[in-house]
Design a protein around this nucleic acid. Structure first.
Length: 492
RNA sequence: CACCCGUUAGUGUAAGUGGUUAACACAUCGGCCUUUCAAGCCGAAGAGUACGGGUUCGAGUCCCGUACGGGUGACCA
């Protein structure tokens, strides 16, 4: 029998989402889709001090960029709301009351100074800094979060002194912790907001979360959650701790490794669908070494069994490769529509640009475009006459060749007096001209290429000619000749 | 310091409950193709599974230890 899958992504709005967070969201989403379950977005905004304005929007944008749509929760609605923790204070308040009633929680009025002193002392004695449970048996009264705020008191969990707490991690098996290593954690802070440990458990329970897929930095706090579930007599979800994502130097992925924000990759010209594919492979494998998978394939093949436990390295080279595969599979027109923004930015194209023409351009470029942003460099000359010539290419194929001026003039005249349209027309014409001049065709080919593109690499020359057309070719040959003559006169 | 997690070619992953010469892809190198650069096709090199012990007829797969990397030890999440 298959149980109903309800999973959640629960970010805190303390900044812009990082690829690691998005990968967690993605895996939750994939699991939900695969099992016909529900993917929930919950905002964990209980830390009022670290709130960063605009982060909720940033989270939504990052998710929608990859089309990871919540079925329920923040921004999607549902029967278990509200989905922003700051709007659920009453729920935590009530559960805390029940726990105090049952003596599994208590009010504590220890000052921060006292706590600091205890911790400092324990550290000196080389022991784990833990709360000494000073208020555990004081039976201080609890009258809701308002009174907590007024008195500067907190609610703590009455954690067992001894014994062992273990849980079954789906990926790592049985993980056990000695209870003596866990202190009486704070459940509700003196500002009336719950702590992560508490709110997380309460919400997962009421939202009927079946599986918790989260980063493995939470392994250590899981026994605390388990203790909470058990003391409340709630069924705990299945825990699945995902491996961390490392940078290329095997250190935790951070800003030093370039970008960690998903939007920056979009700005670099990485397609969201390529990112989706890449991210899904960070810690998961379909089991048969396949790497280029469509969204639908990933969803249908996703399973918890395919997850790995060892850290995944964020390899930007691999990302670019996947991206280039996606680009080369698209039509020229589609590529242009995605690359347009990059070209517009450099004023290479505008609203009036002929889409048919641009589509032809990208049809030629599709196998040479690792990133959309590369189109500025690779497609520029299709939209604007070369404004600079690559030094090496210019010398090697143009100015460094004996009699080049005469050859190029001849080629120009041949083109001018004919009506070449197709790539075959251009090729035949050029070969004939070379024959008449008694030189190798490659001499003209290279000179023509530099003249019309400014560089030595790119699509087939005659295909470029067909797209660019006779008039512009003539103009560019003229420009190249001008530059050449200029050089000659200056060197004399 | 304590407690946890991890460690298969440069990189990402594969190798059902231990069973032949550890597989695939990216990257690298070489060849073919070609006017160039890619793409594509063909091929090569690259790990004996962090290290050391053990269990076993047999271990990447199980056990123990060590090293290295990481996480947690908050009135952060």
């Amino acid at each position: 029998m298959m149980e109903d899958v309800r999973v959640r992504f629960a970010p805190s709005p303390t900044g812009f989402p990082h690829v690691g967070n998005i990968r967690t969201a993605l895996f939750n989403y994939l699991f939900a889709r695969n099992r016909n379950g529900v993917f929930i977005l919950r905002i964990e905004d209980t830390d009022r001090e670290r709130l960063v304005n605009g982060s909720e929007k940033a989270i939504e944008r990052a998710l929608s960029l990859l089309e990871i749509r919540p079925d329920e929760g923040y921004g999607a609605g549902g029967d278990f709301g509200p989905y922003r923790q700051s709007e659920r204070i009453g729920i935590y308040e009530k559960i805390a009351a029940e726990m105090i009633e049952k003596k599994t929680a208590y009010v504590c009025d220890c000052s921060e100074e006292r706590l600091d002193k205890i911790r400092a002392r324990l550290r000196e004695e080389k022991k784990n800094p833990m709360y000494d449970r000073f208020c555990r048996d004081k039976n201080l009264p609890y009258e809701g979060v308002e009174s907590l705020k007024a008195w500067g008191r907190v609610v703590r969990f009455a954690s067992p002194f001894e014994g062992e707490t273990s849980y079954e991690d789906f990926l790592r098996g049985k993980v056990r912790f000695g209870n003596e290593t866990m202190d009486d954690m704070v459940l509700i802070k003196k500002d009336g907001f719950p702590t992560y440990n508490f709110a997380n458990v309460v919400d997962d329970h009421f939202m009927k979360i079946s599986h918790v897929l989260r980063g493995d930095e939470f392994i250590s706090s899981t026994p605390k959650h388990v203790l909470l579930y058990r003391s409340l007599n709630w069924k705990e979800p299945l825990f699945v701790h995902l491996p961390v994502i490392l940078g290329s130097d095997k250190k935790r992925l951070s800003k030093r490794h370039g970008s960690v924000s998903i939007e920056d990759y979009e700005k670099m010209g990485i397609l969201p669908e390529a990112m989706f594919n890449f991210l899904s492979l960070l810690g998961w494998s379909p089991g048969n070494n396949e790497e280029i998978l469509s969204r639908e394939e990933i969803i249908s093949k996703f399973s918890l069994e395919g997850l790995s436990t060892s850290p995944a390295v964020f390899d930007i080279k691999k990302l670019e490769w996947i991206n280039s595969v996606y680009i080369s599979k698209m039509t020229g027109e589609k590529i242009f529509s995605r690359a347009k923004v990059f070209l517009c930015e450099k004023k290479l194209v505008g609203e009036d640009t002929d889409v048919k023409y641009a589509a032809q351009v990208f049809e030629l470029l599709k196998t040479r475009l690792p990133k959309l942003s590369d189109s500025v460099e690779r497609a520029g000359y299709f939209f604007k006459d070369p404004w600079a010539y690559d030094d090496g290419a210019w010398k090697k194929s143009f100015s460094g060749v004996e009699e080049i001026e005469y050859y190029v003039e001849s080629l120009k005249n041949a083109i001018a007096h004919d009506e070449p349209v197709t790539k075959d027309d251009f090729e035949a014409l050029l070969r004939k001209t070379a024959e008449n001049l008694g030189i190798k065709t490659s001499v003209l080919i290279h000179a023509l290429r530099v003249s019309i593109t400014g560089v030595s690499a790119g699509p087939g020359l005659f295909e470029i000619c067909e797209v660019i057309g006779k008039e512009r070719i003539l103009k560019r040959l003229e420009n190249a000749l001008k530059k050449y003559k200029n050089e000659i006169s200056q060197s004399q």
